[in-house]
Amino acid sequence: MTPTPPLVPPFTLDTAIAKVRAAEDSWNTRDPERVADAYTPDSWWRNRSTFIQGRAQIVDFLTDKWATELEYRLIKEIWAFGDDRIAVRFAYEYHDDTGRWFRAYGNENWEFNADGLMRTRHASINDVALTEADRLFHWDRSGPRPTDHPGLTELGL
């Protein structure tokens, strides 16, 4: 059995793709503490027009996010990578407390430290209202996207 390579810089195409999938799987747990552990203690984010510094603020931000973005389901796809940086595109679906569905589209630029923890995250995101019939992300309410569920490219996104 071949050991799994560590998901630390410098990235190869395979480790960058694995890092993106690991991030997707983590975010799909909707567990703010688990997600925050993938970032440096002093990590810096720009998420839309919100600026966040450090794990405690990440936990607070994600706790609020998932209290309003219900049944959140995310798919990420690698766009480009370098030694210690990865660019991704993503889409996620969620509904609000009135039952209205949305799909958010975006791009993220990530920078990692030598241990593979993300130290910088820049996210640009736009939301589009959906009907129930327009939804494309169908899997268990919490947890990773099944391996047989199509990705963004296969879904035509």
Score class of each variant (00 low, 15 high):
Asp14Phe: 08
Thr15Asn: 04
Ile17Gly: 09
Ile17Pro: 00
Lys19Arg: 14
Lys19Trp: 10
Lys19Ile: 04
Val20Pro: 05
Arg21Gln: 10
Glu24Val: 06
Asp25Val: 05
Trp27Lys: 01
Trp27Asp: 07
Arg30Leu: 01
Val35Asn: 02
Val35Glu: 00
Ala36Glu: 02
Ala36Gly: 02
Asp37Gln: 09
Tyr39Gly: 03
Tyr39His: 12
Asp42Gln: 09
Trp45Asp: 06
Trp45Tyr: 15
Trp45Asn: 03
Arg46Cys: 07
Asn47Arg: 10
Asn47His: 09
Arg48Trp: 09
Thr50Gly: 05
Thr50Pro: 03
Phe51Val: 15
Phe51Ser: 11
Phe51Ile: 14
Ala56Tyr: 10
Ala56Cys: 10
Ala56Val: 10
Ala56Lys: 11
Val59Tyr: 05
Val59Arg: 06
Val59His: 08
Asp60Thr: 10
Lys65Met: 13
Lys65Glu: 12
Lys65Ser: 12
Trp66Ile: 04
Ala67Glu: 12
Glu69Pro: 10
Glu69Thr: 00
Glu71His: 09
Glu71Phe: 08
Glu71Tyr: 06
Tyr72Pro: 10
Arg73Pro: 10
Leu74Glu: 12
Ile75Thr: 15
Lys76Phe: 06
Ile78Val: 14
Ala80Asp: 15
Gly82Lys: 09
Asp83Gly: 15
Arg85Ile: 07
Ile86Met: 03
Ile86Trp: 01
Val88Ser: 15
Val88Met: 12
